[in-house]
Each structure stands twice: as C-alpha cells, then as structure tokens.
Design a protein around this nucleic acid. Structure first.
Lengths: 278, 278
DNA sequence: GGCGCCGATACCAGGTGGGTATCGTTGCAG
DNA sequence: CTGCAACGATACCCACCTGGTATCGGCGCC
C-alpha cells in the first residue's frame, strides 16, 4: 500500500522507487501484484505518463487513511510502551554540520525518544555497531558491510592534507601516484581492512598510528606525514588541502545491523536521509 | 497483528494457532517479533496461562480497530473494482451434502460475487486447478499436491462397494488383502498417480476404465468389479458398502494454486472451513 | 530513422515465514 | 515425591517472496 501511494503521488515508477529507496522493477511488480489482488488496474500506463484509474483514485484515498491509521497506532502503542532509547554512534570527526541539524530534526519529530550519542575513534568505522554498542552508526564508507545495512547520505570528494610549506600544497589537483613516497598515518591493529586500505590509497604504508582526527592533523604538522580527508574539513592555518583526482569519493553513511527489530531505527534513518538532503 | 489479536482473544498459543490454521512455534515467534518491535512484552506468560500486559491491552484495542479499517478498505475497493468471479471445481461426485450448504453460505456472505461451478470427471482430482480452469477445487485427497495449497475439510472412512449378493457383502469389516483377487476399476491414462494408487488400494489392478461415479456403480453392478468409496455415499438397493479396516481415510479438501492472488479464494476457503464444521 | 526514456520481463540471491521435532518448566496425580 | 501431561520456547529446515541487476520493448522526439 505504501508503494502504491508513492507511485500514485509521483505518477512515475522510477521516481517513486527512488523515494522508497528501492529499484524500479520490484516496485512495478509489487504494484502489479496489488492490482491482481484487487482484480482491477490501478494505473493507466502510457509511454507518455502514468495516470490513476477510477479504482486507483478510490484506493488512494482509502490507502492514505489506512496508512495514517497505522502510523497513529504505532505512535500510541509506542507511547504506552514507555520511553525508548536510540544510541547513535559517530566517528571522532563529530564536526560534520549535517549532524546537529539531524539531531535537532529527530528530537523535534520524536520528542519522547531518548537519544544517546557515542563518539568513537577512527579505528572502528562502524562505531561498535556489531558489538551492539550503538543502534545506528553515522560514519563514512567504505568498510566491511557484511551483516549491516548501509544507506548513503552524502558523498564528498577526498583530498590530501599537507603543510602549507609543502611543495605540493599549491597544486590544485593531485594523483595518488604522486604521493607514493610519503609517510601515511596508520590505524591501530585490528582496524577494518577495507577502511584502512581506502584511507591508505589502496596499499599498506609506513607511518605513525592515529586514533582521532586531531591526531591525524598533529601527525601532518609534526611528523612529515601526509593524510587524506574529505574536502570541506576545517583546517588550521598551517595546513592545506589539495583535491585528489583519482581517489573514489568518500560517502557519509548511516549503518545499522541487518534485521535489527528496534523500530526507532527506521524513523531515525528517514529523518537522517531528509536532513542530509538539506 | 492478526496473529496477536488471535492470541489475545484465545489467551492460549496453541488454540490461537489452530484458529489461524498454522502451528504453534511460528506463532510464538511472530508474537515475539512484534514484542521486539514495540519494545515491550505484550503477554505475561505463566505456565498456568497467558495474560495481556497493559501494553498488550492498548494494542488489542488499536489492532482491532486497524484490522477493521483494513477490512473495510478491502470491501470498498473491491466494490469499486466491480463484480468479481470465482470458479469452483467439484468432482463428478457432486452429491456431497456439505456442498449445497457451502454454496448458500458463500452467496449469503458475498452476494455480489459471481460463483461458477465446474463439474469434472474422476480422472483429475484437482478439477483443472493447474490448468487455471478453476480457482478452487473442492475434491478428495490424496493427489499430487506440488504447487497447490490444500486444506482438509472433513475425513471419511473408506469402504468397498459390492453387490448385495456378494459373499463378502454381509461382513461388517474387511481388509485390503481379502480383496486382492478382485477386479478394480481404473482411471484413464494420465490420471494423477497418487490418486490412482490410493483408490486402487496401493497396487496396479485390472479392470474397466471409469470417469464418473455413475460409471463406477455400473461397473460394480454389471462387470463383476468392486470399488472403493467413502462411507456415507448413497447407493442403489442392489449395492452394499463394507468398511475397510486398513485403508487410510479419505479427506474432503479444498485446494488452490499456491500463491494465487485472487482475494476471493481466501474468503471462500474461510467459508468452506466453517460450513464443513457444521 | 535512430536514440533515449520508461515501464516490463527474466533471472538470481538472501531473508522471512512457514513446517517438524524436541526441550524445559510447572502443575497435578498417584 | 515422582512421573506425567500440558504448554510455550528453541533448534533446525525448506520453500517462497522480496529486492537486486541486466535487459527488453514500445513509443516519443529530435
């Protein structure tokens, strides 16, 4: 029914699928199944566009009311069940401007929910998701996603952080190969290999071990090291950022354990998705 | 939600499962999942019995209203979609007294539905279900059930039909082995093998080919043959029925294609189940 | 007349929802 | 007090369904 309403409101299967965070074929199939159950076409498909049939119009009204009713039931029962808690994990890099907007939006939409924030170091990009320390991780891909569901909130190009007096600092674009002789910083032992490899530009490197964004900057300033970071990061005056041309962009994502039954997760993810869309 | 309401009304997982036509373990699991989603226990389980928690009481009210709403939506949309048709297949043996009661009950509950009856011969116990000739088959098990969903409506002991002047006709119980030297009637080539084997008492036999109940009786009367039939069948005065002790009973069943989207099927099956319960 | 948009189709994989078999607890009866 | 019956929970398995990717077909539009 939610699928049907989405298509009826967009009058376009592709856009509706995007809105529902799924792909178009299963959506087409789902609508077709609903039509089979009802025994009547709900949409008139023409290559020029999709229109509601009379039956579809009736169902749209009914479906909206019913879904509304279902949402109200959920709210009332949740209220009866008492205050609930959701724990959000964020990477040490808590400076992301989307975050504060998100927290505010979620508190507004679900005032009774107790939000807990768990700030973790860079060695675990999942912020302790697998250990059950958090319900949702707001973090950066890539990392090992087995057992997790991941939704991308934003993508950022990645650059290299250098001292302003570095010969490369005045370039307006660099390739990974031009940095091969540099020291890179390392994450601690046991760090997610996908994550480690990404921030190392694809190969193991030599360099100091770091656990937090601050340590990374320190390493660049004092240790003759160099570091990768998403563009847009605030930097002290002594450091500069040069975009990397051949580095896949970094994605800000929300992740949660696949099949987690906590109903707050779904609503939080919805809020997060819209908050990051501005 | 329907599961929850059933358990809440029965206050007993086993009985609720029976009412829902499923077994108890998946029901327990489903309720537990719902509890996990809500984040609160809905039932207080004690070995002496099951009681609703306060949250459960709230949900029971809400759920009833919501399910009610959903049913109303279905009715309204079905009405908007216009008159629908359901085709019922019955075996030539249309004399079953449950049938007329069932037809009347269904016409009463869904007056706008167009019911079509398709009377088929004994060679296809599924009445053309797989070929899509009917939506539901009211027939007798056993037969090959792959791809079909089957619900038992009643079970009948099986007896052997003999001429009254047959030496065995005065016995009040027989074993299959005592009939091994008789001619049995056969169904046409291509008949479902499970079905054929059942009515042959488990082995291939010699005898005339029949396609309808009338032909079976004719065969017994004139051909020195013998036939199996569920007890309770009306017989002409020249024929007698003797119960078979070691024959598994015959089940009157409703069958439909697994996953068939026609929404009338579900309601028809419900009606059928209650109509046969008397 | 070809290209592009868009919904439909074909096919594949993993999660879910059913099933059966069995267990652990508890109340009750002998 | 001990054996048993009742009942919900658990373990495990299989089939279906839902969501995914790749591709097709049909119609508008340069």
């Amino acid at each position: 029914m939610r699928y049907f309403v989405a298509v009826a409101e967009e009058l376009h299967f592709g856009r509706a699928a995007t809105r529902l965070h799924m792909s178009q074929p299963p959506l087409s199939r789902a609508v077709k199944q609903l039509e089979a159950e009802i025994g009547a076409l709900l949409f008139a498909r023409s290559p020029t566009g999709v229109t509601l049939t009379p039956v579809g119009t009736v169902l749209l009204d009914e479906a909206r009311a019913l879904l509304d009713h279902a949402d109200r039931v959920q709210v009332r029962v949740s209220a009866a069940a008492g205050a609930a808690t959701i724990t959000i994990g964020i990477l040490g890099d808590g400076a992301d401007p989307g975050l504060s907007r998100l927290a505010a939006a979620y508190r507004r939409s679900r005032p009774s929910i107790d939000i807990r924030i768990r700030d973790t170091d860079l060695s675990d990009p999942t912020c302790g998701l697998r250990a059950g320390l958090v319900d949702v991780a707001l973090t950066r891909a890539p990392f090992d996603e087995t057992g997790l569901t991941v939704r991308t909130l934003r993508t950022d190009p990645v650059g290299v952080v250098l001292r302003v007096d570095d010969p490369l600092a005045r370039r307006d674009g660099l390739r990974l190969a031009e940095l091969s002789d540099r020291r890179w910083f390392q994450f601690p032992q046991g760090t997610d290999p996908v994550w480690q490899s990404y921030w190392n530009g694809g190969r193991p490197r030599e360099g100091p071990v770091v656990r937090a964004v601050q340590e990374c900057l320190q390493a660049v300033l004092w240790n003759g090291t160099m570091g990768l970071a998403p563009l847009g990061h605030d930097l002290p005056a002594e450091l500069a950022m040069v975009p990397l041309i051949d580095m896949p962009p970094s994605r800000v994502v929300a992740a949660w354990n696949k099949g987690d039954a906590n109903p707050l997760i779904r609503s939080f993810i919805e809020t997060a998705t819209t908050a990051y869309r501005h």
